[in-house]
Structures are given as structure tokens and as C-alpha cells.
Design a protein around this nucleic acid. Structure first.
Length: 526
RNA sequence: GGGCCCGUAGCUCAGUGGAUAGAGCAACGGAUUUCUAAUCCGUUGGCCGGAGGUUCGAAUCCUCUCGGGCCCGCCA
């Protein structure tokens, strides 16, 4: 919609002033109009005419150019406000019903592929609330990108190599033999469960693999409960076994970006924007996590995606410059790699902070959170705010609000819509209904919100900010609840009932589409 | 000491150059012979952390400053 309006305005401006301007369209406060632009203010410095005059000319031209608007007005301070004409709005109700599930999708990413890596928790214990945040946000970003036409793969990187899994194994073995866990080992209750579960396998040569798989299976199970399934699980170990890490080190060597010092092989990341040089091969001859990660990202690039996106917790943000430096050294186009840094979740029970530590085992798992507040509520809450904001997640509040929770508010709107059709089952949706009867302001507001979904999805996808869709779902629900109270849908007036049912059906479709995108249930009854 | 993020209503957060800054929760007052009251309507609530600056215009951009989170490993 915004694109449609901006192209009309751009054409007008180009016609009058021969200016090729990119016109941004906004949804203003309702009292001004349906859509607006401040383009006149922006171009006024380039044109030697009073603002009012420029605006008047533009308005004239726009009205001549397009039949989309009922009204186009300029204000003294240089805004142009647009009011969409009612015929167009009615036609969109039919369009929504025609397109159904596809309404709101677009094709701006058509032909392009995206690899989105997220969660990638260490296989050393259960997922916690922080992973839940990346799971919800990442999954939603993937869905949003699909909705705008990209082909998306969801990927999970398994850090199944190194000290941490070593320590996990030692901890489990210690527990299985009723010994104290070693210094720096894992003390959580799940370690005892694992020891119990894998007791018979302790002496098998592939014990570590069995152990990692046990944890991974558990993580996958919880992710499934959360509505998320990954396309690829990529094991760090395979990078080593296949020789890809070695290969990568050779390439870095050849590029002249390495040096030896203190018995270790270093990468000259300082030359490429990092604030320190980094070790690739330790004194012991083992490669570092960093070395494997370069190989992993080289592999991602080789797989040929149009975009590569990672979601990392803020505790990894300092890691970005060195990875980009390495990719630069390998001659790769680093702009292709986008790293979203998400801020941490602070968990509270009321005012009491809940400490989270895998080492001591003092933690609440994602699974427990899902059980406590429900999957839909967890998904909604964890994706409700911008990833770059710190999230204070209060379990008591989430639970207390279980009844007056925003997620139920939205779901209730859907259930209510469905109940209308159950109640009005005798009445068949009439394609020929006179949609011109939908003249109530609440109806107009609702339709305008419905037709903005495509803009919202595009904006949320391009900004990688799914919380925009949650805002949208809440606003749409509010407009519907309001409409429901102001206008009776089923009545003795059959003509009006037919028209309102068409609108209700369109609202049901759009709301359901949003909830599906967010992987939140759209219940028919509550 | 350096880097990144955050600071907006009592609480949780939207809004990142444009019109009189918004929502939910909480508080208070109303609405149910009605298609689901898990709802709706109304009221209260703000020096957008602070100080300078840029701009016709700043919550939004720049500088400084205060407060909070995360990071600065031959861990992963």
C-alpha cells in the first residue's frame, strides 16, 4: 500500500519538478488521514517556491493521476495527507478473501536465499530462557523472510568439540560413579539424569557421541514443543573431520595473514579491524573455536546463499570484528554476513532475580517456562520486544497475566470471530454482499488495518524485527474488539449482516495469518 | 581503561528527523435481556536519565555526562 502511494507521489513530483525523489509514506495520527508524507518539506529546499504552493501543485497532480483517494490535502506545514476512497477499501475485503493464506505475502525476496543460524546452544545442558528468546525471534525472522519471498534455511550449529563437552563428559562419568564432579564441571541435576540414563554406555568407545546426542535430542524435543524445527544441524566436529578447518587455515596462511608466536599460530586480525590478534592453533596443537568458526562461515559462503544471517547473544558481540576480519582475509564479501546481536534476558520471580548458571545447575529451563506459562504465551512474550533491548522477564507476571495476557487478548479476538460464524451458520457468505454498507468508522479503521499487513510484514522482515508483527496483532485485535462492541454483525438486516460477515471473514483470515507467522495458535473457541 | 546495548507513564515496552509522544498491565469510574465480559468505553498518569550542540523542526542525529546490562581467553 505504501509502495503504491509513494509511486503515485513520486510520479507527480517528477512530472512537476523533474525531481527523482524517494517518497516515504507513513500512517499518521488518525485525525490527519489514512496515510501521509512529509516529502514537500524535504524537497522545499531544492525548489524556490513557498511550501504551500509546492504542496498545492503536488496535490492537484496526485488527484489527477490516481483514483485511489477520496481526499488528498496539504497542510500549512507541508504535510500531504491521503484518505483512501471507500470503493478501494471494499475491494480489498474481496481481495483478502480471494488470497486467503497468502494475503500479506509479497515477493521482494523472490529468487534469493537466506541462511539463518540461531540458537546454536552448547550441547552441554538444557536450553534456557535466553535460548528461548533467540528461538522465538529467529524462527519469526525466518518466517517473515519466507513471507516476503526469500527461500530460508534455519540452521543450528553444534559446538560438539572442545573443553566444554570434555568437562561435561567428565561430570557425567563422575556422577555415574557416585563421585564428586571435577573442578569446573557441570553440577546441574540434569547431569545426574544423564548419568543414570547412559549408565550402560559408559564403556562404549562412542560414549561422548551418545552423550551429546542425548542432550541434543532433548533440546530438539523442547524446540519442537516451542513450534520450531531446524532445517540443518551442523556439527563442528564434521568441520574438523572433513579437513575443512585445516583447509581454511591453509587459505589464511596463503593470504599472508598469519604468524607464529609462542608456539601458536596467530591470525593478524588487527590489520583488518579487530583490536587484538587471535590464536588459530594453540600451543598444544589444537585448533581454537575461532579457527573452526572461520571454516564454518567459509562453508556457509561456499554454499551460495544470497544472505547469511546469524543471531548471537550480546555476550558474543566482541567476536564480530574477528570473524569479519577472517572473512575479509579470505577475500569474501563480508556484507553478505549480517550478525544480529540480541541483548540478554534477565529472569525474575517478582522482584527476585533468578540466577542462571549451567555450571552450578542453578537455572530454569525453557521447558519449565513453557510448562509454567504455556507455549503460546512464551513465544509471544519472548518475541514481543526488540532484540536489541534488554528483556526483563518476570515469571510471576507472565503467569499472573495468564488471564489478561496480550496473547489471550489476540487469541480471543480470533475465537470471537470464529464464534460469529458458528452462530451465524445459517447465513452463507454472500459474495455479492453490498460492501458499500460498511460505513461505520470502526469498520473503516478495521479495513485500513487489515490492508496494512503487507507493509508491516515487509517492514518487519527487512528490519529483522518480529515484534512489529506482535504489535500489529495486538492493534488489529483491539480494532476488532472495538468493532464488535460498536457494530452488531448478525442482525435482522440481512444486507448489512452479509456485508459485515464479509468483513469479519477478512479479519479472521488476516489475524490467523499473523498468528501462523508467529507460530501462536489461533483457537476457534476459548 | 576500552567496546557494544539500554535508559520514554507506577511497571513492562512501542515509537529512531516531522504534526498535540503511544500501547498493555496496574489504579479509579462505567457498560452484560445482545454474535463469547478472556471484551468494550472513560479517567488518572510524561522535563522521553541530565547538560550542551546541529536543524526550519530532536525522544530520534552529534559531543559530554550519570545510571544499568554484556564483553575485552591459546573457553566454546
Amino acid at each position: 500500500m505504501k509502495q503504491l502511494i509513494s509511486s503515485i507521489v513520486e510520479k507527480s513530483i517528477s512530472n512537476i519538478y523533474s525531481l527523482q525523489e524517494k517518497v516515504e509514506i507513513n500512517i499518521p495520527n488518525k485525525r490527519f488521514g489514512d496515510y501521509s508524507t512529509n516529502i514537500i518539506l524535504q524537497i522545499s529546499s531544492k525548489i524556490n517556491e513557498p511550501i504551500a504552493e509546492i504542496a498545492a501543485k503536488a496535490v492537484n497532480s496526485i488527484l489527477k493521476e490516481s483514483k485511489l483517494f477520496k481526499n488528498v490535502e496539504c497542510t500549512k506545514n507541508g504535510f500531504i495527507n491521503f484518505t483512501i476512497n471507500d470503493e478501494y477499501l471494499s475491494a480489498q475485503i474481496k481481495e483478502i478473501r480471494k488470497q486467503g493464506k497468502l494475503y500479506g505475502t509479497s515477493s521482494i525476496g523472490k529468487g534469493k536465499t537466506v541462511l539463518l543460524e540461531f540458537v546454536s546452544a552448547n550441547p552441554t545442558g538444557p536450553l534456557h530462557i535466553g535460548h528461548g528468546r533467540w528461538a522465538a525471534i529467529g524462527d519469526n525472522i525466518a518466517s517473515l523472510l519466507s513471507a516476503v519471498g526469500y527461500k530460508v534455511e534455519r540452521e543450528y550449529y553444534i559446538n560438539d568439540v572442545g573443553n566444554q563437552v570434555e568437562k561435561l563428559e567428565l561430570s557425567v562419568r563422575a556422577r555415574a560413579n557416585n563421585k564428586e564432579i571435577p573442578e569446573g564441571g557441570y553440577g546441574g541435576a540434569y547431569v545426574i539424569d544423564l548419568a543414570e540414563k547412559l549408565k550402560a554406555d559408559l564403556n562404549k568407545p562412542n560414549f561422548r557421541i551418545l552423550l551429546i546426542n542425548a542432550i541434543l535430542d532433548d533440546q530438539k524435543r523442547v524446540l519442537r514443543e516451542f513450534g520450531l524445527s531446524f532445517d540443518n544441524y551442523y556439527s563442528e566436529e564434521t568441520l574438523h573431520k572433513s579437513g575443512k578447518v585445516k583447509e581454511t587455515l591453509n587459505l589464511l596462511d596463503k593470504s599472508g595473514n598469519t604468524f607464529n608466536e609462542g608456539g601458536a599460530l596467530w591470525f593478524k586480525s588487527m590489520d583488518l579491524g579487530d583490536d587484538k590478534n587471535r590464536v588459530l592453533v594453540k600451543e598444544t596443537g589444537e585448533t581454537t573455536y575461532f579457527a573452526a568458526d572461520i571454516a564454518y562461515h567459509l562453508d556457509k559462503f561456499k554454499r551460495g546463499y544470497s544472505h547469511i544471517i546469524n543471531i548471537w547473544g550480546a555476550d558474543h558481540h566482541g567476536y564480530v570484528p574477528r570473524l569479519k576480519a577472517a572473512l575479509k582475509a579470505l577475500g569474501l564479501e563480508t556484507n553478505k554476513l549480517e550478525i544480529i546481536i540480541g541483548q540478554m534476558v534477565a529472569l525474575f520471580r517478582g522482584k527476585e532475580p533468578v540466577k542462571m548458571s549451567k555450571r552450578t545447575g542453578e537455572m530454569i529451563t525453557l521447558e519449565e517456562v513453557i510448562q509454567e506459562i504455556g507455549k503460546d504465551s512464551a513465544r509471544f512474550f519472548l518475541a514481543m520486544t526488540s532484540a536489541q533491548s534488554h528483556l526483563e522477564f518476570d515469571l510471576e507476571l507472565a503467569k499472573k497475566h495468564a488471564a489478561s495476557n496480550p496473547v489471550y487478548y489476540v487469541q480471543y479476538a480470533h475465537a470471537r470471530l470464529c464464534s460469529i460464524f458458528r452462530e451465524g451458520h445459517g447465513i452463507v457468505l454472500n459474495e455479492k454482499a453490498d460492501l458499500g454498507l460498511l460505513t461505520h468508522p470502526a469498520e473503516r479503521d478495521l479495513i485500513l488495518k487489515l490492508i496494512s499487513i503487507k507493509d508491516e510484514i515487509i517492514s518487519a522482515a527487512l528490519k529483522r524485527e518480529p515484534h512489529i508483527m506482535i504489535e500489529y496483532a495486538k492493534n488489529l485485535s483491539a480494532l476488532f474488539h472495538n468493532y464488535y462492541h460498536k457494530c452488531r454483525i448478525l442482525s435482522d438486516d440481512l444486507e448489512l449482516t452479509s456485508a459485515r460477515l464479509m468483513l469479519a471473514d477478512a479479519a479472521r483470515i488476516v489475524l490467523k495469518n499473523v498468528l501462523e507467522l508467529l507460530k501462536v495458535e489461533a483457537p476457534e473457541r476459548m
